[in-house]
Design a protein around this nucleic acid. Structure first.
Length: 573
RNA sequence: GAUCUCGUAGCUCAGCUGGUAGAGCAAUACACUUUUAAUGUAUGGGUCCUGGGUUCGAGUCCCAGCGGGAUCACCA
């Protein structure tokens, strides 16, 4: 009877003790060797076959001397049938009557051994003759029921609780487990696609002295023995290019990146990007490669290139449409940005109702126009190519137009999914672009990039022509699992930490000599702290507590007045 | 960071213009040896997020805080 526990939790804790009294360890140490998964039972059914399975005991249906329950394991569930004569062939029926009917609870892990049969209702079941408690669950799982049509009743649906307690979410919501299995399948398909072409998976620093490779606010930490600030990476791009300088012809990394920015349904402070760099290739090749990769992943993981998301059906079948940035803006606004000055573009932005400020250069203004008018319109996979040079400081200038770059972004469902360049490998141009970023920073652009002099030095030693591509893994998983929030595809999305419950301090009572058994009752009786207890008259406490004991039929000795006086003098020190 | 919105039993939710805290599932007890959202009968379970305020009286109205969600902004 701890006031911090719900009635159900108390019942389960009492069941622990009762099991121990019966000589059953609720948390046995020894391994339990299963012979089948529940899926193997369902698929390889043979009447009379003996199986040993293990999993969570769920949704028990007691019918007197017989009962049913579902045993859930990582492959699904199978029904177990327990009747008193099978489980207790001798005179002593107490295992069935006590343990099975009263001391097992929803969510307990059990092992079950028995023979297979099919019930009158036509369900494959295990007629259990050996049942082993493997681990008690002392907190009740949400009571989700799924009916014959697969409809969930009383689903565990509160997003806060689901994301804070993903372990519970995974147990009671099957779809969640499937989403994460598919996430891993997508990543594996991608990895196999790269490996089959001979590209090398690598690892590069997460802790970086300069947060380079992208424009974003970093998380800052401090290295004690070097006594310098360190940054969690916002990107790994500059390190992968160093490896191309070093002679690898193709490298890729699944990079967990960290950005100290807002959180919403498509942004988490840490997120995963797959970046790949291939020597001697350009962005045109990379478009072909990206199409092929996505088509392959879809076929491998989904068996089709079509994906339903919301009201849209996306098709990842090659080839994807290719549109230049200039064409895209013309298509959606009627404006041809070719040759337009910064002032003309700014005026156009204002006419579209886009907020502008003096820090915005020509490239930024074009990007704003695109973002406001065109970006959301590309539902089917579409490559947007040839971005203005100011927006792309790490990208090679376009072979036909020095104001543009050889860059593409892949837009899917109105959002950016991938980003790729013909990588800038001219060290002098690269330094100039970094210096331009510095000027933007001085103009007030807080997203401009830092200069990484070691990276410049690497380029000075020579980097082959290279194309690189980055793809948002979380967003890809969202698309291929039909989810619209990033939290649904991350096991543990970032949330504000829970406030620690500042409940009554139980040990403070024990320190004052109050018997352990009494502490919870004393709090429940209204004395929330030792100080409150000491402020009351000992005779009154004596009467209240013994009255409480009698009313609640507590199985602990009645209190003597002297004991209470001892506590109080102890509290008062 | 801004705006809107939500916070009631273990879970999902009702609770009207302020008047004794409700349901289903879950739990407990009993009955029931092939049930399956098992069923039937009975019982227990609440700091109505927290703290102030208005009021004879607040789950309900007001203010502040905490936490979530949505929409923005920033970004991928």
């Amino acid at each position: 009877m701890n006031p911090a526990l719900s009635a159900e939790e108390s019942v389960r804790r009492e069941a622990l003790d009762k099991l121990r009294h019966l000589g059953i360890d609720p948390f046995p140490a020894s391994a339990y060797q299963v012979t089948h998964t529940t899926a193997q039972v369902r698929e390889g059914y043979q009447e009379g076959m003996r199986v040993r399975i293990a999993g969570r005991f769920m949704n028990q249906r007691v019918m007197g001397k017989a009962s049913f329950a579902d045993l859930h394991d990582h492959t699904g569930k199978v029904q177990v049938y327990m009747n008193v004569d099978q489980l207790c062939p001798g005179e002593d029926k107490s295992f069935y009557n006590n343990v099975v009917k009263h001391l097992l609870h929803n969510g307990d892990f059990i092992g079950a051994e028995g023979v297979l049969f099919i019930t009158r209702m036509g369900e494959i079941s295990v007629n259990v003759d050996q049942l082993t408690v493997l681990a008690k669950s002392i907190k009740p799982l949400p009571a989700v029921k799924v009916d014959a049509d697969g409809v969930s009743h009383d689903a565990f649906s509160d997003p806060e609780l689901r994301f804070r307690m993903r372990y519970v979410d995974l147990v009671v919501n099957d779809r969640v487990r499937e989403t994460f299995i598919r996430r891993t399948a997508i990543i594996q398909a991608m990895r196999e696609f790269f490996n089959s072409r001979g590209y090398l998976e690598v690892e590069t620093p997460v802790l970086q002295p300069i947060p380079g490779g992208a424009a974003a606010r970093p998380f800052i930490t401090h290295h004690n023995s070097l006594d310098i600030p360190m940054y969690l990476r916002i990107a790994n791009e500059l390190y992968l290019k160093r490896l191309i300088v070093g002679g690898f012809h193709g490298v890729y990394e699944f990079s967990r990146n960290f950005r100290n920015e807002g959180m919403d349904r498509t942004h988490n402070p840490e997120f995963t990007v797959m970046e790949i760099y291939v020597a001697y290739q350009d962005y045109l090749w990379m478009m072909d490669f990206t199409e092929e990769m996505l088509e392959t992943i879809c076929l491998r993981v989904l068996g089709t290139t079509e994906v339903r998301i919301g009201d849209n059906t996306l098709d990842f079948r090659r080839p994807f449409r290719r549109v230049t940035m200039t064409e895209a803006i013309f298509e959606h606004t009627g404006l041809d940005i070719t040759g337009k000055t910064e002032d003309e573009l700014r005026a156009f932005c204002i006419s579209l109702g886009i907020e502008v400020n003096p820090a915005m250069g020509r490239g930024k203004l074009i990007d704003e126009i695109f973002g406001a008018t065109a970006e959301g319109k590309y539902i089917q996979p579409t490559f947007i190519t040839d971005y203005p040079v100011e927006m792309s400081p790490l990208c090679k200038r376009h072979r036909n137009n020095p104001e543009l770059t050889e860059r593409f972004e892949l837009m899917v469902n109105g959002k950016e999914l991938a980003n790729a360049y013909s990588e800038l490998n001219d060290p002098i141009d690269q330094l100039g672009r970094f210096e331009e970023q510095l000027r933007l920073m001085e103009r007030g652009d807080d997203e401009a990039m830092y200069i990484d002099h070691d990276f410049i030095r690497a380029l000075e030693y020579g980097m082959p022509p290279t194309s690189g591509m980055g793809i948002g893994v979380d967003r890809l998983v969202m698309l291929l699992t039909g989810n619209t929030t990033i939290q649904e595809v991350l096991f543990f999305p970032q949330m504000r930490p829970e406030r620690r419950e500042t409940g009554p301090n139980l040990s403070a009572f024990e320190d004052a000599g109050v018997p352990r058994d009494w502490v919870a009752h004393i709090i429940k009786a209204g004395y929330e702290s030792p100080e409150k207890l000491a402020a009351a008259k000992p005779t009154a406490i004596h009467q209240v507590l013994n009255g409480y004991r009698k009313k609640n039929k507590l199985d602990i000795p009645a209190l003597q007045l002297e004991e209470i006086q001892t506590w109080i003098s102890s509290i008062q020190g």
